[in-house]
């Protein structure tokens, strides 16, 4: 075991962990206000480790028996991780055995990917260390939020509801500023999403499905209009969560 690399990974994960703590705090509050109990919110965070997927998940869970929709929503929202995993798998060194890949592969998030990909070669002890504090931060923040959700006054909870959305804006805007393609794709997605929200017949379709349709149509148009020619688009277009 390489303790030095493990320690290096753990300290690289500290800022991510702190960020996750505060974001998952809001998720905990949202989950309990959607009717889930604290242990349900905690389990979701411990087993998923993804903000957008979990937020979409609780919005689907409040309806009964929408299992197929849940699956489609999760696949659509989380497909980006496949891309990051592919990209990361090309940078791993010989320390990664097959078992390590199956275990550590479950911890690829936007930020963990973002830090790991800047290394020349990714060692498994470094990567394992890197995941520890973000995981703890994500789980404990959810727990604290789920428990405090009942204690905090209404007006504070109300304000916190915008936190995850604000974070999404903070991810998209800087990239849209850099790339016309991302601006166009995002605007198409917003336009479609508004259409599904406000057009009477369409507004009956549940949110999980509409997000998938909006994302796939907007992205498809974007991929046709603005094909990426670089070898590794992730190095030119950073993704962060």
């Amino acid at each position: 075991m390489n303790t030095a690399l493990l320690k290096k990974g753990i300290s690289a994960g500290l800022p991510i962990g702190l960020g996750y703590l505060s974001v998952s705090f809001t998720f905990g509050i949202m989950a309990t206000s959607a009717g889930l109990s604290w242990w349900q919110a905690l389990l979701i965070s411990m087993l998923n480790l993804t903000s957008a997927g979990q937020l979409a998940g609780i919005n689907i869970m409040i309806h009964p028996m929408q299992y197929i929709e849940m699956l489609i929503a999760q696949l659509t929202i989380n497909i980006r991780y496949s891309f990051m995993s592919v990209s990361l798998s090309q940078k791993t060194d010989d320390s990664f055995k097959m078992n390590d890949r199956w275990i550590l592969g479950g911890f690829v998030t936007d930020e963990i990917f973002g830090v790991a990909i800047t290394e020349d070669k990714v060692n498994k002890y470094f990567f394992a260390g890197l995941t520890i504090l973000p995981y703890i931060g994500w789980a404990s923040g959810t727990l604290i939020g789920a428990l405090l959700g009942n204690v905090l006054p209404d007006i504070v909870l109300n304000s916190l509801n915008i936190a995850l959305y604000a974070m999404f804006i903070a991810i998209v805007i800087p990239e849209a500023k850099k790339s016309v393609a991302i601006t166009v794709v995002s605007l198409i997605a917003v336009g479609l999403s508004c259409m599904f929200y406000f057009v009477p017949m369409l507004s009956n379709i549940s949110s999980g499905i509409t997000i998938c349709i909006c994302a796939i149509v907007a992205t498809g148009i974007g991929a046709i209009l603005f094909p990426i020619k670089e070898d590794d688009p992730l190095e030119t277009v950073e993704t962060k969560e």
Binding site: I77, S186, A189
Partner: peptide, 22 residues
């Protein structure tokens, strides 16, 4: 190229659609 572009753009489309108008 299409798959590469698709995978690159999809996070932003998802986040944009999730955020607005919700």
């Amino acid at each position: 190229t299409f798959i590469k572009s698709f995978l690159c753009y999809i996070p932003y489309a998802v986040l944009a659609a999730m955020t607005f108008p919700a």
